[in-house]
Design a protein around this nucleic acid. Structure first.
Length: 648
DNA sequence: GCCGTTTTCGGCCCGACTGTTTTCAGTCG
């Protein structure tokens, strides 16, 4: 079940920081619960989830029943992915219905939010050394063996493990040979050398495209499909997965192994005409390649796209209908509930994913939704969203020219955007207080406006004369004058109202003073949200994945204020931002917010960031009507002009 | 520990690979 662990979205503080045990504090049992209450800090969903993941790990190390440990992890998944703020809801005595959370875990959640502590968890941490959990990161070392090593040799940390392994002491434990011992030493070295790092979507895409061209050229190959978390558009990608439809699997595997892109061949095997191999790419990630039989790719695509949790649900559904589901297809279950084996077994395979879902009585579920976050129920009840699509975008509301920190002159952007087929693009150079990005003072804003006006006049003349460039939008193109206005540390906006009123679109954001306390940050955002001129808040959380943490905000209040004032929230498609993230998009949607999906392009190559933005929007269950820049130009401008503009 | 238009008890997802072992358990995706 490392699978479930690695799927946890973002790192959270070490548990030691979450549950504080003060030696001078009277023991919990002696304090009446009511005396704690509101001064207990509320834990974020990821922090709560982390505790339950860890409980699952520790129980497993203790040798607890697998179903019990799995139950804790399922509950942790549910908490981590809940759009509601779980701790706040519990504090308000209105716990949300979370699948996998029954009485026992609900009680633990109540205790945690009420007192900031969990006695069960504290006891476990006394019984099972918390550092033992770190052993599970060693490739090939699972909870069973780690628990055995701890009980037999008292090993509780990576350092102790290494010392014992090098001294040849591990093989004293039953089930561990010299060979296994060496494998553990290898695993430890791998762990040191290559810390597990997930790739950004853009990096994954580049590698996958190259490989798809390589493999697509091998004879017998009919299609190459990237699968796994990349296809689901998770915000970062670990290993890469490629599915190849071919009847000449051996040729394919040989071609891959012979490629200069491959540093090391891990392993390969397969059966039922389906082959697979794992390779280490040169200066790159690990790649799994699986072949699919011609014309029967449906269950393979479903299986290797995942997520693990989604697949579990599908297999349960299959089971209910008397079938066992695997990547190879459906197999009829016998009287005893076991899949029938051998020649006589009834098997079903399908050419497409649509047919696989149909066989299970479900409509097609888009890859971005396959996380077991309610999509199965929604599919069953016919209320899956009609997801927004990249082809719905009519314009981009966040781009930079060389006037601030972008790369090209204004007219070059405008011409290229026109040929790209957009109906509009908003030029949003930085405002003057952001001097590091060469922000524009009011004088330069006026100059910019004149240039944009002249360009648009020329476009209008050309359209009237019927001379549109190749690829142009049928309704023509206009460059809209906007800005990315800094919300200053003292809470003031960077331009005055008179100047702001003259922009077509005002995007506000916050780059400096990120470490201010929550109250101050919220005040700054309130000023922008309540301004009649601010249309969009760009990259609201301010995070950079793996580099910079989120701003400390009261998110529920933020969403509510955005919805009330009709301020749009940006989904920034830059693959190092991806901000808002999918969980926040869903929460904001429930609060009644509306969105834009933007590239934040500084270079033209970054225009395609909207692909990741749309992926994220789809993971957040957004439909076309929720995304403002899917509107035709006139409607978009009317919406912007008329704030508030809430979703009906 | 969770969960139920076949159940409040008895189930709970699938297959491949690996290693240690003579028939299976642990790990992984």
């Amino acid at each position: 079940m490392k699978e479930a662990l690695s799927e946890a979205d973002s790192p959270v503080p070490a548990p030691a920081e979450v549950v504080t045990v003060d030696p001078d504090d009277p023991p919990y049992e002696s304090r009446p619960r009511a005396s704690r209450g509101d001064d207990v800090p509320l834990l974020a969903n990821v922090e709560l989830a982390r505790i339950f993941y860890e409980i699952g790990d520790m129980l497993e190390l203790q040798g607890e029943l697998p179903f019990k440990t799995a139950a804790y992890r399922r509950a942790a998944d549910s908490i981590a992915h809940s759009p509601a703020d779980v701790a706040t809801a519990y504090r308000r005595k209105a716990p949300p219905a979370l699948s996998g959370v029954g009485k026992a875990i609900a009680d633990k959640l109540a205790e945690l939010t009420d007192t900031g502590r969990l006695r069960f968890y504290e006891r476990l941490r006394r019984d099972v050394p918390p550092s033992l959990v770190t052993l599970l990161a060693v490739p090939g070392l699972g909870p069973r063996t780690a628990g055995d090593l701890w009980r037999a040799l008292g090993i509780t940390s990576l350092d102790e493990l290494e010392v014992a392994a090098r001294a040849g002491r591990l093989r004293a434990v039953r089930g561990i040979s010299e060979r296994t011992e060496n494998k553990i030493i290898d695993g430890l070295e791998q762990l040191r050398k290559r810390p597990p790092r997930r790739m950004r979507l853009g990096q994954a895409s580049e590698i996958l495209e190259r490989l798809a061209i390589l493999l697509g050229g091998v004879s017998g190959v009919r299609s190459v499909v990237p699968a796994g978390s990349y296809r689901r558009r998770r915000e970062t990608v670990g290993d890469l997965d490629l599915l190849v439809e071919t009847d000449r699997g051996r040729d394919l595997i040989e071609a891959l192994h012979a490629s200069a892109a491959v540093e090391r061949v891990g392993g390969h095997g397969g059966r039922l005409g389906q082959l697979r191999t794992t390779v280490q790419l040169l200066r790159g990630p690990q790649l799994d390649v699986m072949t699919m039989p011609l014309g029967a790719t449906g269950t393979y695509l479903v299986h290797f796209t995942g997520s693990a949790d989604h697949n579990v649900r599908l297999r349960e559904l299959a089971r209910d209908r008397g079938w066992s589901l695997s990547e190879h297809g459906f197999t009829r279950l016998g009287e005893d509930g076991e899949a029938l084996a051998g020649q006589g077994a009834e098997r079903r395979t399908f050419a497409t994913e649509e047919e696989v879902y149909d066989f299970l009585g479900l409509p097609f579920i888009a890859p971005e939704l396959r996380e077991d976050r309610g999509e199965i129920e929604a599919a069953r009840e016919g209320r899956l969203p009609e997801l927004v699509d990249i082809s719905d975008l009519q314009g981009d509301c966040h781009t930079h020219s060389e006037w601030s920190d972008g790369s090209k002159p204004i007219d070059v952007w405008a011409e290229a955007a026109r040929r790209r087929g957009y109906a509009y693009q908003v030029l949003t150079d930085h405002s003057h207080s952001l001097t590091i990005a060469n922000g524009l003072d009011p004088g330069r804003v006026e100059q910019q406006r004149r240039i944009i006006g002249e360009l648009n006049e020329r476009f209008a003349r050309e359209e009237a004369a019927g001379s549109l460039p190749d690829g142009a939008h049928p309704s023509g193109f206009r460059l809209l004058h906007g800005c990315e206005m800094e919300i200053r540390t003292d809470g003031r906006l960077d331009y005055d109202d008179a100047l702001l009123a003259r922009f077509d679109v005002v995007v506000a954001s916050l780059h400096v003073g990120r470490r201010q306390p929550r109250k101050q940050l919220m005040e700054r955002y309130f000023t922008a949200l309540r301004s009649p001129h601010v249309d969009i808040i760009a990259h609201p959380s301010g995070r950079k994945i793996g580099i910079r943490e989120d701003l400390d905000l009261d998110w529920d209040v933020f969403y509510r204020t955005a919805a009330e004032t009709g301020t749009l929230l940006e989904i920034n498609g830059s693959d190092e931002r991806l901000d808002l993230d999918d969980r926040r998009i869903r929460a904001a949607l429930e609060a009644g917010c509306r969105f834009t999906v933007d590239s934040d392009a500084h270079y033209m190559s970054e225009w395609d960031n909207v692909i990741w933005g749309i992926g994220l929007a789809r993971r957040g269950w957004l439909e076309k009507r929720h995304v403002a820049n899917t509107l035709p130009r006139d409607e978009f401008l009317a919406l912007i002009a008329d704030k508030p503009h809430r979703v009906a």
